[in-house]
């Protein structure tokens, strides 16, 4: 089991190195940092001078090494646009997105799993047919459309919810949360729903498919033959055995939502990472892009590691020495 964890850590390191390489390429070779700092009118001497102080005259691998050294302590340079350290910028935006995504995922699990279980147990019932159609729509409808519809209904028509921003937030160190204020919670409702619709549909279909498969397994028949109650057969045995793929997919979903909740954040002007990277791309803010790439890679690697740990926890077969 220890070797397994070590092996996973090894591959995480490898992935991080590759991501760092890509991020380094963006940082150094996309756009000219010298131009960006001095402007196009600087003299050749000034340029050489700056090139030396920035270390750009050294061989690439040395530059890469320095890049890594700085990245490890969180120094990704200064944003071209905002003139503040990139890390600070990203950290200030992170809580908004994480809060959004975590709330959406909890909602999706809380609604999607019971729906999936219900449909798996009564695949032919009227209500589960209905749920399946709704899930199909939920998977195919574009996110911005859901967002706009919600805004149309709840902001424009009913005037219940504000259509943009996070509302009031409370600061804890560098973390800011909207969960503790009335306006903050209200502001979360529509963006969370927008993100959750797809996730609910996907989790429901996944759970249904897996569970119908598991229900055909011999051990389910034997569990019935042992006289266990339906509840115990369905939840303790069938559902648990259906959850492994759900863990994987939900992990990947959390990762990609934190990194790319761009559409949803744009629709609701949610001050999160998606909006930040959108602006960074617009302004060719390469340090931000590079750092973002590195952090997203790191985030994904960590999520993968967590998913593997959860696997180990759920599935004893993986714990083989």
């Amino acid at each position: 089991m220890i070797t397994l964890v070590l092996r996973r850590l090894g591959s995480v390191l490898l992935v991080m190195l590759i991501v760092a390489g890509l991020s380094f390429l963006i940082f150094n070779y996309l756009g000219d940092p010298v131009n960006n700092i001095l402007g196009v009118n600087a003299t050749l001497d000034e340029r050489d001078e700056l090139r030396r102080t920035l270390g750009l005259d050294q061989p690439s691998y040395i530059q890469f090494w320095h890049f890594l050294e700085r990245a490890v302590v969180g120094d990704f340079g200064i944003s071209y646009r905002n003139r503040v350290p990139v890390l600070e910028l990203i950290l200030s935006r992170l809580p908004a997105t994480v809060e959004l995504v975590v709330c959406a995922t909890i909602l999706a699990l809380g609604v999607g799993i019971p729906m999936g279980v219900y449909c798996a147990l009564r695949p032919k019932g009227f209500f589960s047919r209905l749920l399946q159609i709704i899930a199909l729509i939920g998977i195919s409808i574009p996110q911005f459309l859901i967002g706009m519809l919600l805004i149309l209904i709840f902001s424009v028509e009913l005037r219940w919810l504000s259509a943009f921003g996070r509302g009031d937030v409370v600061q804890f160190g560098w973390w800011s949360t909207g969960l503790l204020t009335e306006t903050g919670r209200m502001a979360l409702i529509m963006p969370v729903l927008t993100l959750a619709v797809f996730q609910i549909s996907m989790i429901m279909r996944l759970v249904q498919g897996e569970m119908q498969e598991v229900m055909r397994a011999d051990f389910i028949k034997f569990a019935r033959a042992r006289g266990l109650s339906d509840r115990s057969v369905h939840l303790r045995h069938a559902l648990r055995n259906s959850l492994l793929p759900v863990v994987t997919v939900v992990g990947m979903q959390i990762g990609s939502l934190i990194a790319f909740a761009i559409v949803c954040e744009a629709v609701f002007q949610w001050p999160g990472l998606g909006l930040l990277i959108l602006q960074a791309i617009e302004y060719a803010d390469f340090p931000v892009m590079a750092a973002y790439l590195a952090l997203v890679g790191f985030g994904f690697a960590m999520i993968n590691l967590t998913v593997d740990m959860i696997y180990l926890f759920i599935d004893p077969r993986m714990r083989r020495k």
Binding site: D218, A223, R224, A225, R226, G227, N241
Partner: peptide
């Protein structure tokens, strides 16, 4: 009928490899 199953009539199936829940001790 469920209460009779396992209590008064037990069952054994062919494949012992797949008769037990793999996730439970």
């Amino acid at each position: 009928q469920r209460k009779i199953r396992g209590k008064r009539i037990g069952a054994i199936f062919q494949d012992p490899l797949t008769s037990l829940d793999p996730l439970m001790s």
